[in-house]
Computed example of a mutant assay.
Amino acid sequence: MAVFEDVRQIDAGVLNVGYVDAGPADGAPVILLHGWPYDIHSFADVVPLLTDAGHRVVVPYLRGFGTTRFRSDDTVRNGEPAALGLDLVALMDALGIDSAKLAGFDWGARTADVVAALWPERCRGLVSVSGYLIDGQESGRTPLPPKAEFSWWYQYYFATERGRQGYDRNRRDFARLIWQTASPRWTFDDATFERSAAAFDNPDHVDVVIHNYRWRLALAEGEPQYDEVEKRLAGKPTITVPSISLEGDANGAPHLDPSVYGKQFAGRYEHRTVGGGIGHNLPQEAPRAFADAVLEV
């Protein structure tokens, strides 16, 4: 089982980011972005496929995960999309990467979408699991049909203090449950789970996660410095860079049909459904399909 042992650290914006940097230093850069509740090891089998093709591959821990830390105790442990998008831009600046292919799933796909939409000059190509994930707080206020609301049960749990305490006390059990329900046909073992679960011991993890989901429901405020970016995102900007969206045929997490979001991709665009019982954690469950999309976008 592959484990990323050479995790580096770099100051980037408000964070000191933990990241893997693999492959030739002069290779065309690719940045891979994980989701919640996952970590950089979702890409453990993807990275060698890309480095063997000559790419430089950067895989950062998002804020609140792994070895990524806030540089100041006074910084708000903010999980809103604009903050994560600007984290990515700051990391690229710190690493001297002008533009890169961006690829991810869950929070990582949303973050890649944000940068591709608002700063297309930084994105050579986009691979996004579950497609276009940009949204604003206003849409979060709109009730969904009961079946759809049911799939977001944890969002409402996190809206309560009971939920916050429950998540803090049961991070591993909670994550394992999400892995099982989001990928019902993925038979991961304990070692695979524990390899990623260590990332949830980050001291800022609970604060960032709870803020992320409360912000979506307008139950938590964002920070003023991100207001202009969030305003632009609320307008659902189109993505003009070459893009491939992916979806597993057994994704148990909330997701839209590509026919709903396809119009948001205004450049060269293709959707691929990955068969074989593939769930939400697509790069870990189907690394070859994910890597092929990155290579071909």
Rank of each mutant, 00 (worst) to 15 (best):
Q165D: 15
V229A: 15
I239E: 14
G136C: 00
A25R: 14
F174E: 08
S259Y: 10
F290N: 08
Y269M: 03
T273N: 10
I97Y: 07
E80M: 15
N212E: 12
P287S: 10
D93T: 05
K263R: 12
Q165F: 15
I97T: 01
W119C: 13
R69F: 01
K147N: 14
P146I: 00
G267V: 08
H55W: 05
Q9K: 11
G104H: 01
A148G: 13
A198E: 10
D207A: 15
F158A: 04
G267I: 07
E149S: 13
H41S: 09
A220M: 05
K263P: 08
E194N: 09
T187S: 13
G13N: 02
E194K: 03
G35A: 04
A199L: 05
R71K: 12
W36Y: 15
T111A: 15
E138K: 05
P254L: 00
G136L: 00
V115E: 12
L33R: 08
L49M: 11
P60K: 09
Y38V: 05
G85V: 07
D26V: 06
G13A: 04
S130A: 07
G64S: 02
D201A: 04
A22W: 03
F105R: 00
E223N: 08
D73S: 14
G104L: 02
W153E: 13
V241M: 08
N78M: 04
A198H: 11
S139K: 09
E121V: 13
T181G: 01
E121N: 12
D26Y: 00
D113A: 01
F193S: 05
D52F: 08
R63P: 04
F290G: 04
V241I: 03
P24T: 00
L282Y: 11
V76E: 15
F174G: 01
R56V: 13
Q284F: 12
P60C: 04
G275K: 14
F265G: 01
F188C: 12
Q155W: 08
G23Q: 10
Q180F: 05
G125Q: 04
D74K: 09
F174H: 08
D292C: 02
D73K: 15
A25T: 11
V260H: 09
V297E: 03
V209H: 07
V14E: 10
A250V: 02
F193Y: 11
W107F: 06
R288L: 15
V20H: 08
E149I: 07
R272N: 11
R69D: 03
E5R: 12
F200V: 14
A286W: 06
A82Y: 03
V47C: 02
R214A: 04
L282D: 13
V241A: 07
E80R: 15
A25M: 09
G66P: 07
I178L: 13
A218I: 09
